[in-house]
Amino acid sequence: MTAALEVRELYMTFSGVDALSSVSLSVPQGTWMGLIGPNGSGKSTMLNVLSGLYKPRAGAVVVSGSDLGRVPARSRIKHGVCRTFQHPQLAASLTILENVMVGAVRGRGASADDETGLQWLARLGCAEYAEHLPAEVPYGVQKRAEVARALISEPSLLLLDEPAAGLSARERAELVAALREVREVLPDLTLCLVEHDVGLVASVCTELAVLSAGKLIAHGPTDEVLADDAVKLAYLGSRSTT
């Protein structure tokens, strides 16, 4: 079986500094992989390269067997790649539901109607906000609306950039519950979750990849990676894991 995501020898440079350096990894279909690392280690850069917003200096991104090197960011949704942003990117004048439905226009779920959108919002626990504007709803709802917008495009690879950043403890718990619900409904979905909160990542991801200064220093099953000495040193430092 071809991997859902395969990254080979990826390099990304900003004015001479390598934000990603020789990153290679392979993620089987249906795997939920957490991507962790200290601030500035290149996690967002990695998502930006995978979603096509940044063009890597070298290396290949292969999704479900097709090389996306020449596929512009706007066409990646057709290849089943969709993402959310660290800071929610919703159109301020569209309702939450309308924002969600934007994902269906060019996505693979072109037949999705408002009912489908509402269903996703309901699964993520925010259906009651469907008719509100983004500015009128809690931050956590904005972030989950982005997830719903990505899901309605029927992605095979979903990229989430710090979905829990800025959320309260309650909103975090709601998010975890929502993500578990997603896994139940879509067992084939491959997920790449960038997150600061290692506890949260560990509770939903079966695999972990660790970036440090642009280099991949560990990749494997969650518990093994968390036990790895190099990871503890580079990332977790003196902090405990939970």
Binding site: G52, C82, R83
Partner: peptide
């Protein structure tokens, strides 16, 4: 939100 417009096709 141009970025989200792009990533949504």
């Amino acid at each position: 939100s141009e970025l989200a417009g792009v990533t949504n096709g």
